[in-house]
Amino acid sequence: MDHEMTYGSDYKYIPATSIGSGVGMNVLPDVYCYTIQIVNICLVGHPDGSDFVLVDTGMPNSANEIISVVEDRFGINSRPRAILLTHGHFDHVGSIIELVNHWNIPVYAHELELPYLTGKRSYPKPDPTVEGGMVAKLSSLFPNEPIDLGSHVKLLPSNGNVPFLPEFRWIHTPGHTPGHVSFFRETDRLLIAGDAFITVRQDALLKVISQEQEISGPPRYFTTDWGQAWESVKKLAALNPEEAVTGHGLPISGPLLTNGLQKLAAEFNHLAIPDYGRYVNKNSH
Results as ranks from 00 to 15, higher is better:
His3Trp: 00
Tyr11Asn: 15
Lys12Arg: 08
Thr17Ser: 12
Ser18Asn: 14
Gly22Ser: 01
Asn26Phe: 13
Leu28Pro: 13
Pro29Arg: 05
Tyr32Pro: 13
Tyr32Glu: 00
Ile36Tyr: 03
Val39Arg: 14
Cys42Val: 03
Leu54Asp: 01
Met59Asp: 14
Ile66Trp: 10
Ser68Val: 07
Phe74Asp: 04
Gly88Cys: 08
Gly88Glu: 04
His89Met: 02
His89Ile: 01
Phe90Pro: 11
Val93Pro: 04
Val93Gly: 02
Gly94Glu: 01
Ser95Leu: 07
Asn101Phe: 02
Trp103Pro: 03
Ile105Gly: 05
Ala109Glu: 04
Ala109Ser: 09
His110Ile: 08
Pro115Cys: 07
Gly119Pro: 03
Pro126Cys: 13
Gly132Val: 07
Asn144Trp: 08
Asn144Pro: 02
Asn144Ile: 13
Lys154Thr: 14
Pro166His: 06
Arg169Trp: 15
His172Phe: 08
Ser182Ile: 01
Glu186Ala: 09
Asp188Trp: 06
Arg189Tyr: 05
Arg189Gly: 03
Leu190Asp: 01
Gly194Leu: 07
Gly194Asn: 03
Gln211His: 06
Pro218Met: 05
Phe222Ile: 15
Glu231Met: 15
Glu231His: 12
Lys235Ala: 00
Leu236Ala: 09
Asn240Tyr: 08
Pro241Glu: 00
Thr246Pro: 10
His248Asn: 01
Ile252Lys: 02
Leu256Lys: 12
Thr258Trp: 04
Asn259Tyr: 13
Gly260Pro: 04
Leu261Glu: 03
Leu264Ser: 03
Leu264Asn: 06
Ala265Lys: 00
His270Leu: 11
His270Val: 13
Pro274Leu: 05
Tyr276Trp: 14
Tyr279Asp: 08
Val280Leu: 07
Asn281Arg: 11
Asn283Ser: 10
